[in-house]
């Protein structure tokens, strides 16, 4: 298939033609041109094939059960956000207490350091997840906009 019609015909109109989106005069003009132009005749046939193949495609859709399992209603989302806030406050309080205990504990320094490192690792993982979620919320352009 050559890339364009050699006669300079606007082949974009072919898509409008197969979709029935053109005025009668334009349709008649295309009928005449396609009869005379092998390139546009072939292209028209190929475009129709693509449209028909796409229209005949069926997709798997989630079952009713899957919709129920993944249902997220506004109340559940609000509860989740409240849960995140409470969990975050708890994490901050726990971190403060653990840091205080580690610093003031009579245990050898290497025991305190090991405990502190382990807890810090868990804490950092938690903070990274929290930061991702906050980032997502902050950068959601459509949180207030629908159109």
């Amino acid at each position: 298939m050559t890339t364009t019609c050699q006669s300079g015909f606007d082949e974009v109109l072919l898509s409008g033609y197969i979709d029935g989106e053109l005025a009668q005069g334009e349709r008649q003009r295309i009928d005449v041109h396609v009869d005379q132009c092998a390139h546009c005749s072939s292209l028209l046939s190929s475009l129709r094939d693509v449209r028909d193949i796409a229209r005949g495609t069926a997709f798997k859709v989630p079952s009713d059960e899957m919709w129920r399992e993944t249902a997220r209603t506004p109340p559940s989302r609000w509860l989740r956000q409240i849960g995140w806030i409470i969990t975050s406050l708890f994490a901050v309080a726990l971190t403060s207490i653990v840091t205080y205990e580690v610093v003031t504990s009579p245990e050898p320094w290497w025991v305190r350091l090991t405990v502190f490192a382990a807890l810090s690792g868990v804490g950092l993982l938690f903070v990274s997840v929290l930061m991702d979620r906050l980032h997502d919320r902050h950068h959601d352009r459509y949180r207030r906009v629908l159109k």
């Binding site: 974009v12 898509s15 292209l43 190929s46 475009l47 094939d49 796409a54």
Partner: peptide, 14 residues
């Protein structure tokens, strides 16, 4: 709409 649709269909046809 028509021109983008045409380019998309032509790519798929190719």
């Amino acid at each position: 709409v028509m021109s983008r649709l045409h380019r998309a269909r032509k790519y798929l046809a190719n």
